[in-house]
């Protein structure tokens, strides 16, 4: 529903999208500078047709914690351009983690949108004492787990939970390993899955993952070992 001439057009559906609209509208009350709108998406931004030196490769975005900290400080002060840059640097990371933890593209869209708003409205909770990415990982993981718990309030997920359906044998046979891997990930208990996503897929160290999850490093190691073991057992059962 248009609000002050703004048409919300969420890709995600359901309650979280409506909550987002309400939250953004509340945050906007008299506090947000109005600047011309444009797209943030760099894939629709500027074609990189320049001629940078061959030995001068671009640094992957989001890999400079000092710049993240600088940008975050400006965002807290209300700098919209800094917010856009911060989001540009990290949105794929946010989406990627959400997709792998939630195993649902629509839910991943919703969480990505929620995090985008939180980066604008709640960044003051980032104190700068840790790397921005550590803070961001924690926020994303917590959002994902909260969403899962809201969706399945009576489902107790334990490590002994068995897959409810047979695995996608055909996918393995057909060599569609990515789909098989995602399916196996989706059926893994969430605490094992989160450890696997952070360490195995995102490349965090055990210490970083322990900081994100607020558990001892040995716990992360244990969860990762169980996750790996469970995954290969599951893949064998599907083969």
């Amino acid at each position: 529903m248009p609000r002050n001439g703004i048409a919300f057009n969420y890709r995600g559906t359901g309650r979280s999208a409506r909550r987002l609209e309400q939250r953004v509208a509340a945050e906007r009350e008299g506090t947000v500078a109005r600047v011309p709108a444009s797209t943030l998406d760099p894939r629709r931004d500027i074609p990189d047709v320049g001629t940078p030196p061959a030995d001068d490769p671009p640094r992957p975005p989001g890999e400079d914690p000092d710049v993240d900290r600088w940008l975050a400080g400006r965002v807290v002060e209300g700098d919209v351009e800094a917010y856009e840059e911060l989001l540009r640097r990290h949105r794929d990371r946010i989406y990627r983690i959400a997709l792998r933890v939630l195993a649902d593209p629509a839910d991943a869209d919703d969480v990505t949108q929620e995090i985008a708003i939180q980066l604008w409205t709640g960044l003051a909770s980032f104190t700068g004492s840790a790397a921005f990415t550590t803070w961001l990982y924690r926020v994303v993981v917590n959002r994902c787990l909260n969403l899962r718990r809201r969706r399945r309030p009576t489902e107790e997920i334990t490590e002994s939970t068995q897959p409810a359906t047979p695995g996608p044998e055909a996918r393995v046979v057909a060599g569609q390993e990515l789909e098989a891997g995602m399916a196996a990930l989706a059926e893994m208990p969430e605490e094992l899955r989160v450890a696997l996503v952070l360490v195995q897929l995102e490349g965090l160290t055990y210490a970083q993952a322990a900081t994100v999850l607020k558990v001892p490093e040995a716990t992360v190691r244990g969860r990762l070992a169980r996750a790996r073991a469970q995954l290969v057992k599951q893949m064998r059962s599907w083969a």
């Binding site: 703004i6 609209e21 906007r28 709108a37 797209t39 989001l87 989406y95 949108q113 985008a116």
Partner: peptide
């Protein structure tokens, strides 16, 4: 996916 959020902000 983020256009609506960005427009709002």
């Amino acid at each position: 996916v983020l256009d609506s959020v960005l427009s709002s902000i």
